[in-house]
Write a protein that binds this DNA or RNA. Structure first.
Ligand code: NAD
Ligand code: NAD
Lengths: 213, 213
DNA sequence: ATGTCTTTGTGAACGCGTGCACAAAGATGG
DNA sequence: CCATCTTTGTGCACGCGTTCACAAAGACAT
């Protein structure tokens, strides 16, 4: 039976082993003292807690450059997400297959959502169309939205929105980049914002997100 | 002179006004008591601190579906980032313009980086090519990398990596989605992971990032 | 069975970010 | 020039997540 110790996992993830053990403990006592965690069992338990054991139908709205790229992204399926439908407002696209899935027209948005029991929607339309599309998705029953358009969406309580903004990612890099240059800028900034720990990379607790476009 | 109070800004951003004031105080005392902050001046100061007042040349490596979408993204330029070059390994693409910029071959990667003084690189190649491409970028002088390939990159000290992973964004949504269903799952999970505050949306301090693909 | 050795699970201390509350600053009006 | 009112800047306290440290659990060898 292949096992891992919290120490090994912590080293690989670049975090503290005690923290890792405490986190796991919230899911239950799945470890064996003196041995470690059964890898297969642990992966299953975490997957289940994260909601990865069930199939999540997803719709993508706005099949332009970005939407098409997302539709083609294989990493979707490997984590339990299934592209249930592609939706676009352009009549010329209707019926045309992208990544093997025929694009459907926005007119049928509500029906598509309901027929497929979709609760997660991805918005990749131009900024101006994002809020209206969002409203229709929510009205049709979608309660989680991944937004790629550079707009802050307004949604009712109970609906989750996550915004992916490439510009902000680049800004964070530029911010650190500027510091590497070692210039003496006026203000003092708390060291907390300084750098990332080895092992972690990506959107973690970092940098506030307050700035207009 | 148009001004804003910390109270107004805090309400708009969905954060506490005291926190906002304290954050601003790290940049210096730019406010006027009894009045608020001079909007234009404040924006400039924050932009400067974030490194947005200077021009950041960026290269994108891997001009496939995603890379092309990124090259077309207008939000780039509006924040001070300039696409200095597009690079791909496919000889058939060399010279072909994408978003008005001719694609160049990976053979010239080092020269392109150096000629343009690029310090920020975007990787949108298949997963297998990401690490080798990363190594070449770093060797050529790039010290900040935005990685879209589903791989954890290994880099020397002093190089920053941010990974954008659509799957993880969807997993976070699915996790919360599962909870809304209100099912009684076995383990107890700390309420901290529960929900997002009104006003914030997107990659903030949330959810640990430990899980294999 | 008993002892030893490894690793978990967790109580307790620590540190840090967040929020409260208020004194000081400065604008504004009389 | 003084009084008043608004809003900043910040000391301080609270709360929460992280980390330390260790007792208990259990595997494994003798
Ligand atoms: N967040 C990021 O990092 C990032 C990166 C690139 C692009 N973007 C954004 O993603 C969005 C899409 O970018 P793109 O390059 O694919 O643009 P695009 O113009 O290529 O595609 C937009 C698509 O949306 C469709 N559309 C327009 N209105 C619609 C509506 N009301 N309902 C349904 N579909 C509609 C159009 O027909 C088009 O196919 C833009 O808002 C862009 O700013 C974000
Ligand atoms: N993070 C996300 O949310 C997300 C979303 C979609 C895709 N992706 C990932 O982004 C990457 C690109 O996706 P895509 O759909 O554009 O794939 P794609 O196959 O359309 O494009 C890949 C491009 O990279 C080029 N390439 C291959 N090897 C190269 C090398 N060594 N040097 C330079 N260029 C090279 C290819 O010629 C091709 O043009 C993949 O790794 C994919 O998994 C990530």
């Amino acid at each position: 039976m292949p096992t891992v110790s919290s120490e090994e996992l912590a080293a690989a993830a670049g975090v503290n082993s005690a923290k890792l053990r405490k986190d796991f403990s919230y899911l239950g006592s799945y470890g064996t003292r003196g041995v470690g965690y059964d890898v297969e069992y642990l992966v299953y338990q975490i997957s289940r807690e994260l909601g990865l054991t069930q199939d999540w139908p997803v719709v993508i709205v706005g099949i332009g450059n970005l939407g098409a790229a997302l539709a083609n992204y294989g990493g979707f399926a490997s984590r339990g997400f299934r592209v249930a439908a592609l939706i676009d407002a352009d009549p010329a696209m209707a019926g045309k297959p992208v990544a093997g899935i025929p694009v459907q027209h926005t007119d049928d948005l509500e029906k598509i959502i309901q027929d497929n029991g979709v609760s997660i929607g991805v918005i990749a339309t131009p900024a101006g169309a994002a809020q209206p599309v969002c409203d229709r998705l929510v009205a049709a029953g979608v309660t989680s939205i991944l937004n790629f358009a550079p707009t802050v969406l307004t949604v009712p309580d109970g609906v989750d929105v996550r915004k992916v903004d490439l510009s902000i990612e680049l800004q964070i890099l530029a911010f650190h980049e500027q510091r590497k240059a070692g210039e003496d800028h006026g203000g003092t900034v708390p060291p907390a914002a300084a750098h990332q720990e080895p092992g972690e990379q990506g959107p973690d607790g970092d940098v506030p997100a307050v700035m207009p476009a």
